[in-house]
Amino acid sequence: MPDAAPHRTSETPVLAFFDVDNTLMRGASVFYVGREAWRRGLISFRDIAVFAWHQFRFLAVGENRSHLAEAKERALGLVSGHTEEGLIALAHDIYDRDIAPNLWPETVALTKEHLAKGHEVWLVTATPQLVADVISSRLGLTGSIGTKVEALDGVFTGALDGHVLHGDEKAVVARQFADARGASLAECWAYSDSSNDIPLLTMVGNRVVVNPDAKLLAHAREQGWEVLPLKRSSIREAQRRLKREK
């Protein structure tokens, strides 16, 4: 986790990359996209049942490449034919209803620590860019790097613009982004729960594994990486505080 270094004033940026699903929040954000689409009558009950199954599997055993690919394909199908403006509004509703109550307070606090030190905090995620942008904006982070979906004249086609940011692809994009920003990877940070993000975690000088899956936990212990375990009770307490403040 960030040390007690003073506020950074150097022109060379330090970037902190945060995964979203099960790192910044509990569960898979794409599931909530599907559930909100079902609430609005955009997809069938069968579709939401499939999304629910992927969510259960993700929480129980972590990411699975084939399940993730199917979920992403279904999510892309949801946006086809819808306007950017309409889906931004939907993303804000998803944030308020489903994402905010499931944020890990400890991980959110780490983003704030990085910002206080003058670091840039970027979400880097397979989550659609539009949703990632809303999460980043609502949390006051620097920005997001997500999976891009093709849009023509402000209407989504349902096709990818590039690749799903997952595994090696996420690391490649993050490296290119850091190079473009003039950042030294040795000074950068990365946070993730998934063994699929080992390439991202390996390429930076500072990494923290958050609620790691079994494979990542074994790798982290072997490499001497910092491990941050989280408990659902922290989310429940945050939810209670939110209700008291309302």
Score class of each variant (00 low, 15 high):
residue 242 L to M: 04
residue 237 E to Q: 13
residue 91 A to C: 15
residue 87 L to R: 12
residue 227 V to P: 05
residue 72 K to G: 08
residue 182 G to T: 15
residue 237 E to H: 11
residue 13 P to R: 10
residue 33 V to P: 09
residue 133 D to S: 06
residue 119 H to A: 12
residue 218 A to P: 00
residue 123 L to K: 02
residue 107 T to C: 02
residue 209 V to F: 03
residue 228 L to Q: 10
residue 194 S to L: 13
residue 221 R to L: 10
residue 11 E to R: 02
residue 206 N to V: 06
residue 127 T to R: 00
residue 126 A to H: 03
residue 213 D to T: 08
residue 147 T to L: 01
residue 130 L to A: 03
residue 62 G to K: 13
residue 47 D to C: 07
residue 223 Q to L: 00
residue 82 H to D: 06
residue 90 L to D: 09
residue 148 K to V: 06
residue 64 N to T: 08
residue 80 S to L: 11
residue 18 F to H: 00
residue 31 F to W: 14
residue 196 N to S: 05
residue 108 V to H: 11
residue 109 A to N: 07
residue 86 G to Q: 09
residue 5 A to K: 14
residue 24 L to V: 02
residue 183 A to E: 09
residue 158 G to F: 08
residue 87 L to G: 06
residue 49 A to P: 05
residue 158 G to M: 04
residue 212 P to Q: 04
residue 138 R to P: 07
residue 214 A to N: 06
residue 80 S to F: 15
residue 71 A to V: 14
residue 35 R to L: 12
residue 11 E to H: 08
residue 67 H to W: 11
residue 64 N to F: 01
residue 183 A to F: 01
residue 25 M to H: 11
residue 93 D to Q: 15
residue 41 G to Y: 12
residue 42 L to K: 13
residue 51 F to S: 12
residue 211 N to I: 04
residue 29 S to G: 15
residue 160 L to K: 07
residue 6 P to C: 12
residue 18 F to I: 10
residue 60 A to Q: 11
residue 206 N to W: 04
residue 161 D to N: 12
residue 88 I to H: 12
residue 63 E to Q: 06
residue 187 E to D: 13
residue 127 T to V: 09
residue 71 A to P: 03
residue 125 T to N: 01
residue 6 P to S: 14
residue 137 S to Y: 01
residue 218 A to N: 09
residue 166 H to N: 10
residue 119 H to G: 07
residue 25 M to L: 15
residue 212 P to V: 02
residue 176 Q to E: 09
residue 1 M to I: 01
residue 177 F to L: 08
residue 84 E to K: 14
residue 133 D to N: 13
residue 171 A to L: 10
residue 11 E to D: 09
residue 126 A to E: 00
residue 244 R to F: 00
residue 71 A to C: 15
residue 111 T to G: 02
residue 64 N to A: 00
residue 128 P to S: 11
residue 225 W to E: 07
residue 231 K to I: 03
residue 201 L to W: 06
residue 207 R to W: 04
residue 222 E to F: 02
residue 23 T to A: 00
residue 93 D to C: 12
residue 10 S to Y: 03
residue 44 S to P: 08
residue 112 K to H: 09
residue 229 P to C: 09
residue 27 G to Q: 14
residue 79 V to H: 06
residue 158 G to C: 05
residue 122 W to R: 08
residue 242 L to E: 12
residue 110 L to K: 03
residue 118 G to P: 07
residue 80 S to K: 12
residue 8 R to A: 09
residue 98 D to F: 06
residue 65 R to P: 00
residue 61 V to L: 13
residue 150 E to V: 10
residue 183 A to V: 07
residue 231 K to G: 15
residue 59 L to Y: 11
residue 181 R to L: 14
residue 149 V to I: 13
residue 44 S to A: 15
residue 198 I to E: 05
residue 147 T to M: 00
residue 210 V to S: 00
residue 76 L to T: 08
